[in-house]
């Protein structure tokens, strides 16, 4: 399947026809709705909050944010930003409740520090990996976006960005940019190894352990890259114990030689011991 990201820049790709198609397609609507609900679940908002919707498009996800009933902590108030004027025109026609801005995420989020309780972004941030003119780079745009997003969220705030990376490199580039900006970051993968795989980049501002955000959820396996690093470290320590000349190393080598059919001296309590210093 072709990726729209490979065809045109977002402001040109989502022209009037594409925007109308996107907004009226019931399939896209239902996918968007389910992803927004999943993102909200990850944000875990208890009270009516002020939310940034980066890449709001025609306000499909915003609509859901303002329709959350008060028993579930809603309704939320949101501000959306998008680079496609046709998408925003669609949103105006549909008369959504949130405020919208015509802006490029790659130029930063123009809000003062600590503005938002949370941020949400559905199928948008992979567009930041495109550089459409020679004076910008994907890394620069990602840095600008995540740095300003980090600043605009209040302490303890969360951001959930669902995105479609083109390849593992792009996925790493996006998550590394978020980590560099200061976020605690994790990626939640829904339906892994299927065609419908959905990636959610979950970001916290000064909120401690990221794995806590999925603590209450069912059917979520936590794969902690940091913990893997720890295991690797332990492995390395084990290697140090097993270094050349140590008792374990000698015994391993003797075993190997025995396996090859060589004549090897039997192991005893003196094997691999240092000799007593005579003088």
């Amino acid at each position: 399947m072709s990726r729209p990201e490979d065809l045109l820049p977002p402001d040109l790709f989502y022209n009037d026809t594409e925007s109308r198609k996107y907004t009226t397609s019931s399939r896209i609507k239902s996918i968007q709705a389910s992803m927004t609900h999943r993102a909200l679940e990850l944000l875990d908002l208890k009270e009516p909050s002020f939310i940034l919707d980066a890449g709001c498009g025609s306000g499909l996800s915003g609509e859901i944010l303002s329709s959350i009933p008060d028993v579930e902590g809603g309704p939320h108030t949101w501000v959306g930003m998008d680079i496609s004027s046709s998408m925003l025109a669609q949103a105006l026609q549909r008369d959504v409740e949130g405020d919208m801005m015509f802006a490029d995420m790659g130029q930063g989020v123009p809000f003062r520090p600590g503005t938002f309780d949370a941020a949400i972004s559905i199928s948008a941030i992979q567009w930041l990996c495109n550089a459409d003119s020679s004076d910008v780079s994907p890394e620069g745009r990602l840095k600008r976006f995540f740095d300003s997003l980090y600043a605009s969220l209040r302490r303890g705030g969360r951001a959930v960005c669902q995105f479609y990376p083109k390849n593992p490199q792009q996925r790493a580039m996006i998550s590394n940019a978020a980590i560099k900006a200061g976020f605690g970051a994790g990626i939640l993968e829904d339906d892994p190894e299927t065609k419908n795989v959905k990636l959610y980049l979950v970001l916290t501002v000064g909120g401690g352990d990221i794995t806590g955000t999925v603590g209450g959820m069912q059917d979520v396996d936590v794969q902690d890259a940091r913990r893997r690093g720890e295991k690797q470290k332990r492995g390395w320590e084990f290697d140090a114990h097993n270094r050349k000349g140590s008792k374990a190393w000698i015994q391993r080598k003797k075993g190997q030689m025995e396996g090859k059919g060589k004549v090897v001296k039997a192991n005893s309590k003196y094997t691999g011991r240092k000799r007593r210093i005579v003088f």
Partner: peptide
């Protein structure tokens, strides 16, 4: 315009 503010900057001003 129409309640939508434009914060798109020309590239030399970013």
């Amino acid at each position: 315009k129409d309640g939508i503010a434009s914060f798109l900057l020309p590239s030399h001003m970013v």
